[in-house]
Amino acid sequence: MALNTPQITPTKKITVRAIGEELPRGDYQRCPQCDMLFSLPEINSHQSAYCPRCQAKIRDGRDWSLTRLAAMAFTMLLLMPFAWGEPLLHIWLLGIRIDANVMQGIWQMTKQGDAITGSMVFFCVIGAPLILVTSIAYLWFGNRLGMNLRPVLLMLERLKEWVMLDIYLVGIGVASIKVQDYAHIQAGVGLFSFVALVILTTVTLSHLNVEELWERFYPQRPATRRDEKLRVCLGCHFTGYPDQRGRCPRCHIPLRLRRRHSLQKCWAALLASIVLLLPANLLPISIIYLNGGRQEDTILSGIMSLASSNIAVAGIVFIASILVPFTKVIVMFTLLLSIHFKCQQGLRTRILLLRMVTWIGRWSMLDLFVISLTMSLINRDQILAFTMGPAAFYFGAAVILTILAVEWLDSRLLWDAHESGNARFDD
């Protein structure tokens, strides 16, 4: 018995066209964080690309023209004298008006014999932002004059995390709450300039795509075929072959399989920071003279006294001054041990922890910024005066060393310790 099946006739004509040209192939790229070699397709503007294995951002879609970056830099340069030299806060102490600005706080630190601690604050609040705007201006002028731009481009990517104007702005709020127990506070004209400078700096850093600047100024022929001998440069993120001198053909720094002496430098910085954190938390970090009496505060006791007036601000200072430094030390110690013992479990967790400490590390400088600003506000000789204690130097040095330890660690070593050939990683 035959089955009668109805015929289905399409209502619209289906047209099949042959592909007349070869589909576009992607360029081969190595991930600078996990060293995976993959094919990167062509990316349009405002599109980002991520590593298929570790999800690290390979290409950032946010990109401004150099002219727009230069305009932002010149605007920031105009704001800087007002943000640093004009009063941020006014207080009335014992019937006398006192003005506080950024430069005055750094000068008070240096004047009291601790120039190293003052230079830490100076670099993060004044030096690094000033280098940022002058570097962008150098790129703008240098591109037109045919100057060598490689050193500036190499420095810009590392400079971003040292620009800490946003953290200093939080420190202004913390210092205001600490001082309000002794005097009446009012915002100064410099505060508005400083807030504007923070906003412009944040926007500029978020749109400063150094890798795209490398592509514009020093374009290189990408690798179009897969080759395990391809290496990625950690300076400019170019994937290719080393030249005859073993250097990256684009930025001219040595092109090595792994960062040289990464573990040794990381261990040295980490152990030194552990040693410095002990006096930083045991010795007094601030000293207040009130009517001839002397009151010393460690980091913890200062947080407890701050909690009596504002528990939320005390929580912020606790996280930045105690929780973050010790968390960074514990995480980095764990990561280094996992590399030495070739741990194969929990790779995803370790990668996330490394990215976390990379982002939060700079916030530990908050305590030094609060001390710097408070020193310029309260300084009335023996009637009422505020000065920093010996722990300030140890704390600042420990924070900087932990930042350097994270920067010096080559994250690809975590993958080397893991089993080879993993296309995915999980716990």
Rank of each mutant, 00 (worst) to 15 (best):
I91F: 03
R30I: 12
I288S: 01
I274A: 08
P279Y: 02
L40P: 06
H261T: 06
T75A: 10
I98D: 07
L154V: 05
Q108N: 03
K342N: 10
L208S: 15
L300N: 05
E407H: 09
P32S: 15
A392Q: 02
L368W: 02
R59D: 10
C233Y: 00
S119V: 01
R68G: 03
L354K: 13
S338E: 07
I172N: 06
P81A: 09
R380T: 02
G292W: 04
T387G: 02
V179H: 05
T387V: 12
L156F: 14
R53V: 11
W359D: 08
R144T: 13
I106P: 04
A397P: 01
S176W: 06
L89K: 05
I167D: 02
Q345P: 13
R362S: 06
Y289W: 11
L384M: 07
I96Q: 08
Y182L: 13
L366C: 09
A71M: 05
C31E: 00
H340V: 11
Q344G: 15
I299M: 15
R231S: 05
V170N: 02
R259W: 03
L413C: 09
L159Y: 00
R231I: 07
I319P: 14
F395S: 03
Y168M: 13
L213V: 06
D114W: 08
V406I: 09
G190E: 02
F395W: 06
G85V: 08
G173H: 02
T134A: 12
L270V: 10
L276S: 05
Q47E: 08
G240S: 14
L77C: 15
I371Q: 01
R59Q: 07
R221L: 08
L413T: 07
G421M: 11
E419G: 13
L93F: 03
W408P: 08
K229H: 05
A70L: 15
P325C: 06
L283F: 03
M304D: 15
W92D: 02
L23Y: 11
M365G: 10
A269T: 04
L37P: 13
N143I: 14
D35Y: 07
A405I: 05
P151I: 01
S193H: 01
A391T: 04
S372Q: 04
R68W: 09
L40E: 05
A83W: 03
I106E: 04
T9Y: 10
S376D: 13
P249S: 06
A314E: 02
V195M: 09
R424E: 15
D410A: 00
L200V: 13
V152E: 01
L156Y: 13
D35K: 00
M365K: 09
A405C: 08
T110S: 14
T298L: 07
L230K: 11
Q108W: 03
T134L: 12
A18S: 11
K342C: 09
P6S: 10
L77D: 09
M388G: 07
L323V: 12
D166Y: 15
L337I: 14
I43H: 13
L373G: 05
I351K: 11
I14V: 11
K57P: 13
V121C: 05
P279W: 05
H261A: 04
R294P: 02
L88S: 03
D99A: 14
A397N: 06
L347D: 13
A115Y: 04
Q220C: 06
I177A: 09
R221V: 06
L156E: 05
V152Q: 02
F74E: 03
I316F: 09
A73L: 14
I116K: 08
L145M: 12
F122N: 04
I98A: 07
E42W: 08
S45M: 13
F425D: 14
D63L: 15
I378G: 00
I8K: 12
N148Q: 07
A272S: 08
T75L: 05
R150W: 01
M76N: 04
C34K: 00
Q244P: 14
V133K: 03
P222Q: 10
A18T: 12
